[in-house]
Design a protein around this nucleic acid. Structure first.
Lengths: 151, 151
DNA sequence: TTTAATTAAGAGTAAATTTATCCGATTTAC
DNA sequence: GTAAATCGGATAAATTTACTCTTAATTAAA
């Protein structure tokens, strides 16, 4: 039950871009080195981020990547879903669920509720938030988690 | 970011045992058939459950499995951890974490908080709870999730 | 206009993990 | 003793994850 390595790398990459001056293009090489992420793997990951519209790229000399919108408008969930697709803690929660029990399965229900919470935290936490001091982030996440979900 | 198939099978298996009369031994064959789980895989899974002390087994003719304690004293987390080990949404949250950033990583902090919530729901939801009507379970889980964590 | 730098795209592969099966050993009831 | 069941170890098959490579397209600057 783990986020993929690619998902984590994506978050680190986006976070790195968020720390650069706005409008500045940053090369994969630089991010790869700074964050100790295999270059070619990171390149692949950034392709997905570009397709998802989270970062914009420019090819050729002096090319590179930059966030395509403000860091506060990119959620952790945006980044994770760009890489992994819709999060699903369990088969039943997949976009095309393949669970026969389906209707009366309390197991699916429990996982479903947990999934809702997880999504809520990740969608209400922005890349900008990740730049705050650690304890501030922790406080914020705790607050989000306690709020009654809107379903 | 998904629970393993084995973990889900384990929950279904334990839930099945919970529905049987107390003290009655149930064979793998029966559970496997009822829940449509490959027999030899389920057998393996039940070995783990036995080792974890969640179910007791008896070998030989008329052997089988039964819960080793009351369904209300077995949490969803107990079952999942018996199969998957400690849950970890991310590398940093592993029992032996291998994250260099470690100290000031807000990413780890966010995942850590989410993990706390997840664990809280799973540990406060018992196998007995899974036998209740679906909407009762949903309500209960929502309530657990809203409560401030104790850290 | 040529060249060097850089991303895009996609095929390919290696390693790890998960899922599943098999089989001989062991235990137990009868 | 024999049949019925789990135990345990090995391993095979499938899937996912992690990563590499190659070729092409694009761009800036010499």
């Amino acid at each position: 039950m783990r986020v993929t390595q690619a998902g984590e790398y994506a978050l680190l990459g986006v976070l790195y871009l968020a720390r650069q001056p706005v409008g500045q293009l940053t090369m994969i090489d630089q991010i790869s080195e700074a964050e100790k992420i295999p270059k070619s793997f990171l390149a692949k990951i950034f392709q997905s981020l570009t397709h998802a519209g989270l970062v914009k790229s420019r090819q050729g000399a002096k090319g590179g990547f930059a966030l395509s919108r403000k860091a506060e408008d990119i959620s952790v969930l945006n980044v994770l879903e760009a890489i992994e697709g819709k999060l699903a803690l369990q088969r039943c929660l997949e976009e095309v669920p393949d669970c026969e029990r389906r209707d009366n399965c309390t197991l699916c229900a429990v996982f479903g509720e947990v999934q809702n919470k997880v999504n809520e935290v990740f969608s209400r936490t922005s890349v900008r938030d990740l730049m705050k001091p650690k304890d501030a982030v922790v406080r914020q996440v705790q607050q989000i988690a306690q709020v009654k979900s809107v379903n």
